[in-house]
Amino acid sequence: MSAISTEGLSLGYGETMIIDELNVSIPKGEITVFIGSNGCGKSTLLRSLARLMKPMGGSVLLEGHSIAKLPTKEVAKQLAILPQGPEAPEGLTVHQLVKQGRYPYQNWLKQWSKQDEEAVNRALKSTKMEDLADRTVDSLSGGQRQRAWIAMTLAQETDIILLDEPTTYLDMTHQIEILDLLFDLNEKEQRTIVMVLHDLNLACRYAHHLVAIKDKTIYAEGRPETVINCDLVKNVFDMNCQVTTDPLFGTPLCIPHGRGRCIVQQAQAETFLAAR
């Protein structure tokens, strides 16, 4: 059974259709990454999977059950989402932020418990934020802040985690740090992770399953090594490239053609050949 899936899902804003009758199945226990050009609907699709957006048509199924019919707290116990660029109230500490992940388990009969505190501590430890627990979120670096938000989603203790561009605004070192953290969570705890990423090479390196979106639907999906080729990159991103193999991980590696530079190099090559 898939962790989460859609059946004839259509999404839009007003009269503008963004996703049209899309069917997708997210493999359980794997890392799935949505790729595509800006504005193709990646983030819109991710939001709909978390029931943050009402479909214009079709349905989202959470482990086979219509997510629209499930109680909100029940959904929150199965699925967590980290939107792009979340903001915490000024003065909120990391520990206080991570505690918010336990909201689905609180009610007037069940107050804060030892189990809740243990979940928070595990989340802080998994994200290496224990030493920063008393720091305010707004005093952290970009990478630390992102780890704090991920800790909050971990404290929610869901089997499925959705992340919208978790590496945005981070430098290369912190991008790898965040993606390594998510990869380890998947490897060690078999969490199902669904992400939107802009960097195609990082998507290929970390994903088990890629979903390329174009023209309001799925253009291609599957394992990176079976999906990524020059034709896909050209058709989905309108970019010419060479696809080779990452020497470290054996995953597809896309080398873009710089349009102006290629024209100059081609002219130089033609001049050289003519001279011979």
Rank of each mutant, 00 (worst) to 15 (best):
T16F: 10
K28D: 13
L61P: 05
I160M: 07
L49H: 06
D134M: 10
M56W: 07
L62E: 02
D238Q: 15
L79N: 06
L253P: 12
Y13R: 08
Y103Q: 10
M56N: 09
M56I: 10
H174M: 06
L124F: 07
W108M: 11
L46P: 03
E225V: 09
M152D: 01
L202N: 05
L124H: 09
C204I: 04
K69C: 04
A212M: 14
P86H: 06
Y105C: 00
I4S: 01
I161C: 03
R223Y: 11
I81S: 00
T192D: 05
I35M: 08
L45H: 02
G101L: 06
V75H: 08
F249A: 11
N23T: 07
F237Q: 05
L92T: 15
L62T: 07
A148Y: 04
A119V: 04
I193Q: 11
I213A: 01
Q100F: 13
A274M: 14
S66L: 12
H174Q: 15
E117Q: 13
H209P: 01
R135M: 15
M129Y: 07
F237E: 02
E189Q: 10
G14A: 10
L109S: 14
D184T: 12
Q100Y: 13
P252G: 08
R147F: 12
T93F: 04
K188R: 08
S113H: 11
P166N: 04
N201S: 03
T271D: 15
G260H: 07
E74R: 14
D231P: 09
G101V: 02
R259N: 05
N235D: 12
K188W: 00
K188D: 12
T6I: 07
V33K: 00
T127N: 07
V243A: 05
I263Q: 15
G58F: 08
D116W: 07
V98W: 02
V98P: 02
E87M: 10
K110V: 12
K234I: 05
I4P: 02
L162Q: 00
F183D: 10
V120A: 09
F34M: 06
C254S: 15
S141P: 13
D171A: 05
V98H: 05
G58W: 10
V24I: 15
K28T: 11
L232P: 01
V33W: 01
D138S: 14
R147W: 13
L97I: 06
E187R: 10
V194E: 04
Y219G: 02
C241R: 00
E63K: 14
C40A: 13
D171M: 13
K216D: 05
S48P: 04
G91T: 09
A207D: 01
N235T: 14
K128D: 12
L210Y: 01
M195Q: 08
L200C: 05
R122I: 15
L162N: 03
L210F: 01
L253N: 08
V211M: 14
H95P: 00
W112C: 00
R145M: 12
K188N: 07
D180C: 09
D171N: 09
D246G: 00
S43R: 01
K216Q: 12
N186L: 06
I228K: 03
V24S: 02
P27H: 06
Y206Q: 08
E74A: 15
E63Q: 11
V196A: 02
K114Y: 10
Q266W: 13
D238E: 14
